[in-house]
Computed example of a mutant assay.
Amino acid sequence: MCLGIPGEVVELMSGHEDLAMVSVEGVQRAVNIGLLRDDDSAELDLRPGDWILIHVGFALSTIDEAEAKASLEWLTGTGDAYTDELDALRASDITDGAGLGEGAR
């Protein structure tokens, strides 16, 4: 089962306008935020502390903190499906493909 999980934006990654470092339950990973733009030229109104809904390394939408916390509480109760999703997040790393390497994490 694949889930969309809430994550908090930690930083927007300079030099990579479509990437943000996001924290999910203490696991930090780069996430592609390009889908949050209305079009290719649109400025993205996203900053550290904002919450996003993530699926397979892509931010699908922004959500407010109350919705994020309620979702995390519910997801924690789902057991294996959520644990599997966190394990997949821990194992993922899109930074290598972006040329960021070890020093970016």
Rank of each mutant, 00 (worst) to 15 (best):
L60R: 13
E73S: 13
L19E: 01
L46E: 05
G57E: 00
S71L: 12
C2R: 02
A91L: 07
V10I: 10
G99A: 14
W74R: 15
D50K: 05
A59S: 09
G57V: 08
G4S: 09
G15C: 03
G49V: 11
E67N: 12
S14R: 14
E85W: 03
L53C: 15
F58N: 14
L75C: 05
G101N: 04
V10E: 14
I33E: 00
G97C: 06
D40R: 14
I52N: 08
G103P: 04
D96T: 12
L86D: 01
Q28A: 03
H55K: 13
E17V: 15
R47F: 11
G77K: 00
M21I: 08
M13S: 13
G79E: 02
D96Y: 10
R90G: 08
Y82D: 01
A20F: 00
G99R: 05
G99F: 03
G101F: 01
E43V: 12
D50R: 00
D40E: 12
R37M: 06
G103F: 06
L60F: 12
C2G: 01
L53Q: 13
I5V: 15
Q28E: 12
L89W: 12
S61E: 05
R105T: 06
G34Q: 11
R37I: 11
A88N: 14
M1T: 15
S61W: 09
T76K: 10
I63G: 02
G26W: 02
R37N: 03
A66Q: 13
I54D: 05
D50L: 02
E43F: 07
F58D: 12
A42Q: 14
S23L: 04
D96M: 04
G101A: 09
L12A: 01
D45S: 15
T78P: 02
E65M: 07
I5F: 02
V10G: 09
A70W: 01
E25I: 11
T78S: 07
T76W: 04
D96H: 08
W74C: 07
D38V: 11
K69L: 11
S14L: 08
A70L: 07
D38I: 03
S14W: 01
N32D: 12
L53H: 11
L89F: 10
I54L: 10
L89V: 11
G79L: 04
G15M: 03
A91R: 14
D50Q: 06
A68R: 06
E73I: 13
L36I: 03
G34R: 15
E8F: 04
A30F: 07
Q28S: 12
D80N: 13
L53A: 15
V56E: 09
E67H: 12
I33Q: 04
A104S: 15
I63M: 15
G57K: 02
W51V: 09
A81C: 02
W74F: 15
E102P: 15
L3R: 10
L100P: 10
N32E: 06
E11I: 09
A30W: 00
D50M: 07
W74G: 08
L35P: 01
G57C: 08
L53W: 00
F58I: 05
V10P: 02
E67D: 13
M1S: 15
D64V: 09
E8V: 11
S92V: 00
N32P: 05
V56N: 14
L12P: 01
G15L: 04
A70N: 14
L86Q: 08
I54H: 08
A20E: 03
G15P: 00
L3S: 10
W51H: 13
L86A: 01
A30C: 11
R47W: 03
